[in-house]
Design a protein around this nucleic acid. Structure first.
Lengths: 147, 147
DNA sequence: ACTAAATCAATTGAACTCAATTAAATTGAA
DNA sequence: TTCAATTTAATTGAGTTCAATTGATTTAGT
């Protein structure tokens, strides 16, 4: 029962399975997202853009927990592919506004099947999936109010 | 009940909070690991090496869900710092064997306080943390025997 | 023994991640 | 108004992450 209570042990950590799970699932997205010419980071960026139609890099970063160092090249790539446009806000020129293009909205239609394709890839019941999501958002909620 | 049932919505995904949680928690490790001159990837690598004393890159990769493309530079860096040694197995020259050095074992002592320093950073009860770990290991395909 | 298949670490190239810094625009206090 | 502090996106540099490939070694089939 207590072979070792060594806290410096992978299986006592919470962060490690989070990190491993995250990477393993993102790997499973790859073949489905390749059909859309998107990486996972580009995909979640488009998910926010599809929903908002128009959003600043600042707000996008808050939604995705990513900073401009990550987002700038991702957004330039999405612009290159024609899915979004990038332009400065007229009210506040510091803000870069990202807008979805008609081509970006067509991509959305093609992306609609992705969640279903991914749905079966985790061997969790609906209740377990809901519980997992609840716990993850509880952890994320703490992060923001921390200090 | 829910604002909308659009499956292409960040908050209906499981992968996104996993990915965000993982990165947010790893960020919190940083100041503590910096004192040890380790990155998070180097830290979890050392955790396995501390436990096994001696392990092949192949087995290390299975434990960490990482391949040689990631591990090779990580292990070279750890060797450079003097925490491990790298040498080919004499029984099978394809295998690279990683061994912890005395300096690596000294590092372990200094690392012992890290889990405690990180313990309070998640807003979960002990039961919730256990449930979260159980669900994560279920997704990883390994039933968690732990508690 | 011979050779085809499999295994393993390393390498390569593209993309991500983030801390730190920079430069431009805005805000706010004196 | 003036100018110091703040906000914002971009840039830089170090370190992952991973698919695909390469080359060396071992295993297995004949």
């Amino acid at each position: 029962m207590q072979p070792d209570f060594n806290p410096l042990c992978l299986k006592y950590q919470l962060c490690f399975p989070l990190y491993a799970c995250s990477r393993e699932i993102i790997k499973q997205y790859r073949p489905h997202l390749e059909e859309l010419d998107l990486t996972y980071t580009q995909y979640i960026t488009m998910m926010v853009v599809w929903e908002r139609q128009e959003i600043s890099v600042r707000d996008l970063g808050k939604e995705l927990y990513l900073d401009s160092g990550t987002l700038t090249p991702v957004l330039k790539s999405l612009e290159q592919k024609g899915f979004i446009s990038r332009s400065r806000s007229e009210q506040d020129e510091r803000l870069l506004i990202v807008k979805v293009t008609p081509s970006g909205m067509e991509l959305r239609k093609r992306a609609e099947s992705v969640p279903l394709k991914m749905a079966g890839c985790m061997n969790l019941t609906l209740e377990e999936a809901g519980e997992l999501r609840h716990l993850l958002y509880k952890v994320l909620g703490k992060e923001n109010t921390e200090e």
